[in-house]
Write a protein that binds this DNA or RNA. Sequence first.
DNA 1: ATTTATTTTTAGACAAGTCTAAAAATTTTA
DNA 2: TAAAATTTTTAGACTTGTCTAAAAATAAAT
Lengths: 216, 216
Amino acid sequence: MNTLAEENYLKAIYHLSLNDLNVSTNQIAAALNTKAASVTDMLKKLADKELINYEKYQGVTLTAAGEKIALHIIRKHRLWEYFLVEKLNFKWDEVHEMAEEMEHISSVELIDRLDKFMDYPKHDPHGDPIPDRDGNIKKYELKPIASLTVNESGVISGVRDHSPTFLQYLEKQQLTIGKQIKVTDIIEYDNSMILQVEHTTTHISREVAKNLLIAL
Amino acid sequence: MNTLAEENYLKAIYHLSLNDLNVSTNQIAAALNTKAASVTDMLKKLADKELINYEKYQGVTLTAAGEKIALHIIRKHRLWEYFLVEKLNFKWDEVHEMAEEMEHISSVELIDRLDKFMDYPKHDPHGDPIPDRDGNIKKYELKPIASLTVNESGVISGVRDHSPTFLQYLEKQQLTIGKQIKVTDIIEYDNSMILQVEHTTTHISREVAKNLLIAL
DNA sequence: ATTTATTTTTAGACAAGTCTAAAAATTTTA
DNA sequence: TAAAATTTTTAGACTTGTCTAAAAATAAAT
């Protein structure tokens, strides 16, 4: 259907679109670890296939068809991540690279059965929503802990940084998905925050607070 | 490590080696649905990497390194087939194409955990032995039902033809892995055989008898 | 033991996806 | 708003894996 490279471009454009309406060539190049010239070549191909809207120098957006494909890849990625954590007992910081390969396995029937096997999970191990088979995805309604003020609380429900080092740090501090937290103090000097997490207290930097998300 | 194409060539050569010591260019081309000229190109590349022993016009054999890679791919293929049948409830005739994609997922840790998750199966759904993580594989010690004489019996333990049509036929006749069979008669005219399978009687052609294997 | 048929290899070409270097367009800055 | 900086595109080249057509080697047949 589509090549591996095309799928990776569509997925990258989808993710970048969440932050910027028009995605630039350089952004895509950075996300895919390739060069701008290569990106331009591929953008022409994807535009020919009507998977993206592309005008020279103006950046790109996904067409409905392109977005559907991107969401299908993301669905597969997140279901496989869930499988790896829940069934094969990998940690949440270990599964991304494997899922990057597994998301390209083509069978739709396989993914539907996998979904059923795991009893239709709604979120992957990092709290990201899993699109359904028609490409419907729950709107992302989380906000960073950094936006809270003293005495506000919430439930940890997602992360903005998926890097293993960040995830390992959170694990060590017990700051994992589902945990109830409360902001007990904010240090004015550096905007770092003191959190109450279950029965312990943790001190996190503003950097961490911006990348840890709670449910609204 | 190795490209997808290289892995497919090594696997094909391994399978063909089970019937012929030296595998010919044309045999490989037929197995991979490609042209002899393309095969020659790839054989040079694999020989450069010392994964095959190759002398012009003489056919090829796998080196120890090449065989190890082939067996690793086959291990992954068969474990994924087992997963698809035992965990996702696919039928034995539906899993080959999916496993062809899944066998190229690279993580060794993933496969070891999958193996454990399924409690270390020894055979895939078609009765083929699953190599261990070091590339050791049980010697194939099965013989076709066609080699039996009247009143001999055995347990169905493998197939020589993995095509969906053959597997579906066997399924319908209840001729599946693990079934005890006994030859009650052989029709001299066409060498077809009458089998006792549990409490029923089935009549199979010589063609089928050659492709259905029982344990020694 | 030659001729014929078959198999295999070489030669040259092509598509996908990438790259570097240079040109063109856009954006920023003074 | 014109010059400078940045971004994006074009041009041309390279790699991987494939192909067709033709040449070379091997095997089969008379």
